[in-house]
């Protein structure tokens, strides 16, 4: 454990910053570069870094694969559900204008929800794929000793 002390300390500083940056990219996508796809990937990277340093088992306790699988489907559901909601409110599929009184307000809410759905699906997809891949390697780290550089 001692040889990993530096990694643990550094990752403990980095992971909150990565998560914060992911949230910034997610919710600031209207004004700057970024959006659901990029934010989802960055969000997943924080968990993957955690899994690399602390071991896949600890990571599975932090965010179990049942949760990521649920989130995976939930994201698409939120996106598609927004479309159904706009239809129920009298518009066309994914026509955000009807979500609020003004056009801009409706579009803002629509884009916000849809991007949230995208971010949810992308991040949980990345975590799920990483879990699945590393679940096949039965070691603490996802790399065997012989494969290390």
């Amino acid at each position: 454990m001692t040889e990993k002390t530096l990694l643990i300390v550094v990752s403990k500083i980095l992971i909150p910053l990565i998560l914060l940056f992911a949230l910034y990219v997610q919710f600031h996508g209207d004004f700057g570069p970024g959006g659901g796809f990029q934010a989802g990937v960055i969000f997943a990277v924080a968990f993957i870094l955690y899994a690399l340093i602390f071991g896949i088992r600890t990571a599975r306790k932090v965010i179990p694969s049942a949760v990521t699988r649920t989130m995976l489907a939930l994201g698409v559901l939120i996106y598609g559900g927004t479309g159904v909601a706009t239809m129920l409110m009298g518009g066309e599929y994914l026509d955000y204008n009807v979500l609020a009184d003004t056009v801009k307000g409706g579009q803002h809410i629509g884009i916000f929800i849809v991007e949230f759905g995208v971010g949810l699906t992308v991040s949980s997809a990345m975590i799920t794929i990483f879990y699945t891949f590393s679940g096949h390697v039965n070691a603490e780290l996802p790399f065997r000793k012989g494969d290390k550089p």
Binding site: D30, P33, G35, V103, K104, H108, I111
Partner: peptide, 15 residues
């Protein structure tokens, strides 16, 4: 005026 966000990429992508 039609969508709103200053980042046109987001408007095109999501709306």
């Amino acid at each position: 005026e039609e969508v709103g966000p200053p980042n046109i990429v987001t408007s095109v992508l999501a709306s």
